[in-house]
Amino acid sequence: MNPVFPHRQTAHCETGVIANLLTYHGLPLSEAMAFGIGGGLFFGYLPFIRINGLPLTTFRTAPGSIFNRVTKRLGIGVARSTFRDSDRAMAALDRYLAQGVPVGMQAGVYWLPYFPPALRFHFNAHNLVVYGKRGDDYLISDPVLGEPVVCAAADLARARFAQGALAPKGKMYCITSVPKQLDLAPAIRQGIREVCRYMLSVPFPLIGTRGIRYLANQVERWPAKLGDQRAILYLGNQIRMQEEIGTGGAGFRFIFAAFLQEAADILGDGQFLELSQRMTAIGDLWRDFAVAGARHCKGRAGQGEDFADLSHILRRCAAQEDALLRELSSLVRKP
């Protein structure tokens, strides 16, 4: 008996798990749609949270929240559990697998042996689906990989009980009930409204488009405040947060643009198409920032490329996202 799972490679792990799990349960949903309905787009610069001594920047909402919102908005039943004990966690997983139910779970990247070595940092908010067991090995559909993989039980147990920030504590979830038909239109509106709320009107200067501006001001001061060497480290870290950890800032902007494109078809409103194109341009702008920043890290910065120019790019990102989201917000408020 070989269990089958509709594995699709996706750009982001959490939305990929949602899309693949729902597709397995007979509700084909794209990754971009899951990202948009879950209100995944976000920005937060959180210098008081340090990762290896460097400030945290996030381009997406808290891990797990996209999944929670998508399932709630689409009326999907979910069973979630966390564990204190690794043996119990693995036994519970085996029980689900024996019933033929694929299980989504949170895991630490560092202990997953199938991951490329160069990407194995202590990052705990990775998501994957376990869909079968062969002997002592588990069959895993990891949405950021091209093909399903096999992972030894001991390694998976380690990854499920990785320690540190955002420790997964064996967290696993599976879908228990699905509606007969997906009613996407209201869920899309809810998702967009939420993104607009978080990006535009959180009364805290480090969140949303205000947060991007705050980061821009900080970037400008880094060389004076930290010295050249630390400033380069901070910048490199910023680029990694943007482009590597969880698909990155530009990547999420592109996923959101893809979502707006799908939303235009479903809601039958061409204005979303135009906004989608503008969102693509914003994603490209974020990539420009990474390109210019990386040249700095390499010590290859040309003329007109000091930290002030980098922060200038960020300010343009902030301004354009601000304008776009305000339009989007008025668009979904229409009855």
């Binding site: 490199g236 870290n237 990474a290 990386a294």
Partner: peptide
């Protein structure tokens, strides 16, 4: 992607 690679190698 080159910029991401540079940042990663730096790390």
């Amino acid at each position: 992607w080159e910029p991401a690679n540079i940042a990663n190698i730096q790390a």
